[in-house]
Write a protein that binds this DNA or RNA. Structure first.
Lengths: 218, 218
DNA sequence: TAGATTGTTAATCGATTAACAATC
DNA sequence: TAGATTGTTAATCGATTAACAATC
């Protein structure tokens, strides 16, 4: 892999898209792919794709493009998908259990070790083999397994408390599914899986569709 | 409400954050809140917050701030949360059922009418009172209910097919939970609920944490 | 060679931030 | 009045796009 340069968040967010496309290509595709082809397939600008790829890869060859296999490896390595990240999940509700049971995270190097909940009735219930433990065991579990990532799937009202507990356990990154802002010191990353944001974009688009310009000018 | 101006996507994506904070404030809070206070609470720049609010609200009063109730109304109206959007969901797996059973969407004006699945075994199984129907009934259902939004929670390999079916049913916006790019004509909005993107951001952050500069320079 | 493609340098665009005037 | 706050105008910053040179 190429020496890692400083990479912007916007570039970073596009990489998974390239990766998914490359990995989903049929087995019998030619071994090389051009930035142009990738761009067209994903509806993006070709210069942007080329620049993004240049940041993570040793480079393609003029007239030929990038070796697909190599590109996949480079992106995966860049994103750290090649070594596993252990995580714990707080909140074994419906969403929490759905995530706990989802096998696809393996592909991204994410391994959810266990879920935690304050409800004793949920404890022990193995969804797809993963343990659900009482929240009281969170700290000792995280410390002994050296867990660095926490997933928050509790209701909004309890999210900050869950985050605080996770941070006390030495966690460095939080994947937040609760629809609230979480306060955290700057060295802790809070990544919001923002359903509310998506819904806002969708809702405004539909509004605009139904209420074309003419009506707005009345 | 103020006459709607052209609003950028980045502003639009911040509005739900303000809204959630305002709605979660305790009942006994003072009736007014300043952009400064909001900014501090959410860890944002105050000028940015003020500019964002100016786009959706009639404006606050110097020295006093914005009327909280009014601001909530303005944002909700702007985002279209005040009138309900009906949606259908395709793919009644674990994630699909979790979304189907989530009552919180009401707050965003989203009403999932039904789920559809190709597996006959899943059909009929009411999760929390919402029907799961066979995919064959999708078209007639969408047409008769005039559904404009579709939610895709099928595995990646079937996502494009599901999207194509939804578009044939006259849907104008797709909320895509599958980790693949969906091809769609420009007037159809595809909003990706991108777990892969979030995971990339988290993964790279953790990598950087564990491998501080010194090591990189070796 | 010609043409497709890469990678880079410069120009444009848009969004954020800073400075300031207006208001209660 | 003074000070907190709003809203606006100008400056900065960063990201995208366009133009072009290099390469096989």
């Amino acid at each position: 892999m190429v020496q890692k340069k400083e990479i912007s968040k916007s570039v970073l967010k596009r990489l998974p898209g390239y990766l998914a496309y490359l990995k989903n290509m049929p087995e019998d595709s030619p071994p090389h792919i051009s930035a142009t082809a990738l761009a067209n397939a994903l509806g993006m600008g070709e210069v942007q794709v080329r620049k993004d790829l240049a940041l993570v890869s040793d480079g393609g060859r003029p007239k030929i493009g990038y070796l697909r296999e190599g590109l996949i490896e480079d992106i995966e390595q860049f994103l750290g998908y090649d070594n596993t990240t252990d995580a714990v999940l707080v909140g074994a509700g419906r969403l929490g259990c759905a995530l706990l049971g989802y096998s696809g995270f393996e592909e991204y190097g994410l391994n959810i070790l266990a879920a935690f909940d304050s409800d004793p009735d949920k404890v022990g219930t193995d969804e797809s083999g993963k343990p659900i433990l009482h929240i009281g065991k969170l700290q000792s579990f995280c410390k002994s397994h050296k867990v660095l990532m926490g997933i928050v799937t509790v209701p909004a009202a309890h999210a900050q408390a869950a985050a605080d507990q996770l941070m006390e356990c030495g966690i460095k990154a939080i994947w937040n599914f609760a629809p609230v802002h979480l306060d955290a010191p700057p060295h802790i990353l809070v990544q919001n899986q923002n359903m509310a944001t998506s819904l806002a974009v969708l809702s405004v688009h539909l509004q605009a569709q139904m209420k074309p310009k003419k009506e707005l000018e009345q």
